[in-house]
Amino acid sequence: MAWVFLTEDRVYKLKKPVVYPHRDCYLLRDREVLCREEVHLNRRLAPEIYLGVVALRLDGQGRLAISDEGEVVDCLVVMKRLPEPLMLDVAVSAGRVSKARVSRVAGMLADFYRGLEPVEVTAASYVDRFKGELDRNREMLVDPQFGLASGAVSPMLDRLARLLEEEPGLLGDRADQGHIVEGHGDLRPEHVCLLEPPAVIDCLEFSRRLRLVDPFDELSFLGLECERLGAAWIGEQMINECAQALENRPSGRLLAFYTAARACLRARLSLAHLLEPAPRKPEKWQPQAREYLALALRACRELG
């Protein structure tokens, strides 16, 4: 959804003029609004990284330039370039993540969530959101063209759907108790930088609905992705420390549901790449979907 240009110490992000069901960037004015929203929102967790928005112009010779003169043809988000070895996914793969660094990230996230005002969301609408996602997941995951509908997938999806019907309070109580906030929306290891202080980038600027989350849903997602990289301990430590700092510890069953639901969503999004007219790395997506489904099945076993 964007082109990213890297220099030695800067990153420039140019949003593509595309239209998706969840986002319309066809007009320049819409891209500019999203650029400014991206900077505003991401400064919550990376205030020193997001430098602002600049105009891309045509100079007198008809060349593209970042300057104060010439016709404006687009706009760019400008960021400081982060050190790749300190990105959490890279550091995990290299075995260079310490408990102390994870603790600092957990502390920053706990402070972030503690400072957010609860968003009014009814229990019914919160549960319905998950029901809708599960329906979309099922449609994709059991599609015969992907060859993933093993004997375990449909029963797992049935179990998640049945939980929402039989125990709506498991999720609904989170909304009723005021635990839904406007969070990050895409809390993955590749968005976490182990700087001092840490920084978290690339929140979902284009959809407030997707940013309305239970903090422990986001933290479960981060834990899921760390587990896929072979570092399940990171998610466990993060959740434990945030629960203590926030004085709010969700049940293990709720965390298991969040993890399974996120894993199914990630499996679906992996397969969705294969529906593109010219998918990049087509050999990647089915194995990746299988990885997520295996993690979803593991989490689902904890539901009892």
Score class of each variant (00 low, 15 high):
206 F>Q: 08
303 L>R: 08
215 P>G: 08
155 P>Y: 08
54 V>C: 04
9 D>G: 03
2 A>K: 11
13 K>Q: 00
10 R>P: 07
237 Q>N: 09
216 F>C: 09
126 Y>V: 05
201 I>R: 07
47 P>C: 09
133 E>G: 11
2 A>D: 06
102 V>E: 02
300 C>S: 13
36 R>P: 06
95 G>L: 11
258 Y>E: 03
22 H>F: 15
82 L>F: 14
114 R>V: 05
200 V>M: 12
159 R>H: 11
264 C>A: 11
147 G>A: 10
255 L>G: 02
18 V>E: 08
42 N>C: 14
289 A>N: 13
297 L>C: 06
32 E>T: 14
22 H>M: 13
225 E>W: 03
278 A>Y: 13
103 S>Y: 02
243 A>F: 07
74 D>T: 12
71 E>P: 00
190 E>Q: 08
116 L>Y: 01
93 S>C: 09
145 Q>R: 15
23 R>C: 10
86 L>P: 01
235 G>A: 03
160 L>N: 00
5 F>D: 04
287 P>C: 07
256 A>Y: 12
130 F>C: 03
282 P>T: 02
118 P>S: 09
87 M>P: 02
68 D>Y: 11
189 P>T: 00
48 E>G: 00
257 F>G: 03
80 K>M: 06
28 L>Q: 09
49 I>E: 13
85 P>W: 01
11 V>R: 06
109 L>R: 05
272 A>P: 01
46 A>D: 05
173 D>M: 06
129 R>E: 02
41 L>A: 14
144 P>F: 01
193 C>H: 08
160 L>Y: 00
212 L>R: 11
147 G>T: 06
59 D>Q: 13
51 L>T: 06
271 L>Y: 10
144 P>A: 12
13 K>G: 02
229 L>G: 07
79 M>K: 08
177 Q>M: 13
132 G>N: 11
14 L>R: 11
171 L>C: 09
69 E>K: 13
44 R>Y: 00
130 F>E: 04
177 Q>F: 05
99 K>E: 15
115 G>V: 06
40 H>F: 14
267 A>T: 02
208 R>Q: 12
33 V>Y: 03
280 R>C: 07
182 E>P: 04
98 S>A: 00
23 R>F: 01
104 R>F: 00
265 L>K: 04
263 A>M: 10
93 S>R: 15
20 Y>I: 12
69 E>A: 15
198 P>L: 02
20 Y>S: 12
269 L>Q: 15
117 E>T: 13
88 L>H: 08
103 S>G: 04
99 K>N: 12
271 L>Q: 11
66 I>V: 15
152 A>P: 01
232 A>R: 15
24 D>I: 10
136 R>S: 07
182 E>R: 15
37 E>M: 14
270 S>R: 02
213 V>I: 02
28 L>A: 07
224 L>N: 08
234 I>T: 04
42 N>T: 14
286 Q>T: 14
7 T>G: 12
253 R>A: 13
169 G>C: 03
299 A>R: 03
251 S>M: 08
179 H>K: 07
172 G>T: 06
182 E>G: 01
63 R>N: 11
266 R>W: 00
266 R>T: 05
217 D>L: 07
181 V>D: 00
260 A>G: 07
91 A>E: 05
121 V>E: 10
74 D>K: 12
165 E>D: 11
281 K>M: 12
276 E>P: 08
300 C>H: 06
17 P>I: 14
